[in-house]
């Protein structure tokens, strides 16, 4: 297990490096010279040339990549092109806002999704099951940004129950500011998780070990909990683990719509300004988190399922 984890961590580093290299190559191809952007339209050619040298843009691409990764391993993600502030600081300032947003989003939606899916499976082919199916498919098909726009419209503009803009200050205020964005991001995950849990519950419910538990007179409650649900949540854990990537991309839209600080908003702003070091730094960190989330979900599954543990 320890060896497996170490192996996966090394692999994670490789994945992140490949992802960031690809991004750097893409930025290289995109028109727009960073040096020109920094200096503005009235810079002299000599000045541009000197800035390019200072930024290392005159050197071959491969050398740029090697230096880039060399710096990263020393903890240096480069500097903001305009302000000269360290990218690592900027990213770390914004990261908590996004992390809390997606954590809250996935927690409420997974909890509700599991309950909804489980009850649908237990009450299969009743009006509840049908309704939950319709709601699930409905939420899955609504993109997060549409949900965000309408939740702002309904709850902030019409009803005036919740604030629409910013992240808030202080504990209670931060929470009220978190509700709508976390709702908007999480909604479709209720549907995903509910469908997944329902399907795997139905599959597990028909298995012989459930009938055997029943043959020993165990209560339905106990059978549902430790013989069905305990196994049926496993695919949902994988789903959530890989879903972190989708949550980040949903966070990009939602943070912009709610004018909320965070990695997503940071990336959008940096891309608009061609502030490439920030784009690279932010993508590096989010990729790292996504890869880590997949690893964690695999480890959680190994923890819950002894058959998987054996294979590690």
């Amino acid at each position: 297990m320890l060896f497996y984890t170490a192996q996966r961590l090394v692999l994670s580093v490789v994945i992140v490096m490949v992802a960031v290299s690809i991004l750097k190559l893409m930025l290289h191809v995109v028109p727009g010279d960073p040096a020109v952007l920094v200096l503005g339209p009235r810079a002299t050619p000599e000045l541009i040339e000197r800035t390019r040298e200072a930024m290392g843009l005159d050197r071959p691409l491969l050398v740029q990549l090697v230096t880039f990764f060399g710096n990263i391993f020393r903890g240096d993600l480069g500097h903001d092109v305009f302000t000269g502030r360290a990218v690592s600081r900027i990213v770390l300032e914004q990261l908590p806002y996004t992390l809390i947003l997606i954590t809250v989003a996935i927690m409420w939606s997974a909890a509700l999704g599991i309950v909804l899916g489980a009850y649908s499976a237990l009450r299969r082919n009743t009006w509840f099951d049908t309704l939950s199916g319709i709601v699930s498919v409905g939420t899955i098909s609504i993109p997060a940004f549409v949900m965000a726009l309408y939740s702002v419209l309904v709850f902030a503009v019409w009803l005036r129950w919740l604030p629409a803009i910013g992240a808030g200050e202080g504990f209670v205020n931060s929470i009220t500011h978190l509700i709508l964005p976390a709702f908007a991001i999480g909604v479709s995950w209720v549907g995903y998780v509910a469908r997944m849990v329902r399907a795997s519950m139905l599959e597990i419910m028909g298995q012989p070990h459930v009938r055997m538990a029943r043959a020993f007179g165990l209560s339905e409650r106990r059978i549902t909990r430790s013989h069905i649900l305990k196994i049926a949540v496993l695919p949902a854990v994988t789903l959530i683990g890989t879903g972190v990537a989708h949550l980040f991309s949903a966070a990009v839209f939602v943070e912009v719509i709610f004018a909320r600080p965070g990695i997503g908003a940071l990336i959008v702003q940096a891309v608009n300004e061609r502030n490439y070091p920030i784009v690279l730094g932010a993508v590096l960190v989010t990729t790292g988190i996504i890869v880590l989330a997949t690893l964690i979900s695999d480890l959680v599954i190994a923890l819950l399922d002894p058959r998987q543990r054996e294979e590690l």
């Binding site: 012989p208 070990h209 007179g217 165990l218 430790s226 013989h227 196994i231 399922d305």
Partner: peptide
């Protein structure tokens, strides 16, 4: 029925490979 099962009546099933809870 629940009261009888696992007290007065017990059962052994056909396929032992799937009759036990795999995660317990």
């Amino acid at each position: 029925w629940r009261d009888l099962r696992g007290r007065r009546i017990a059962m052994i099933f056909q396929d032992p490979m799937t009759a036990l809870n795999p995660v317990t």
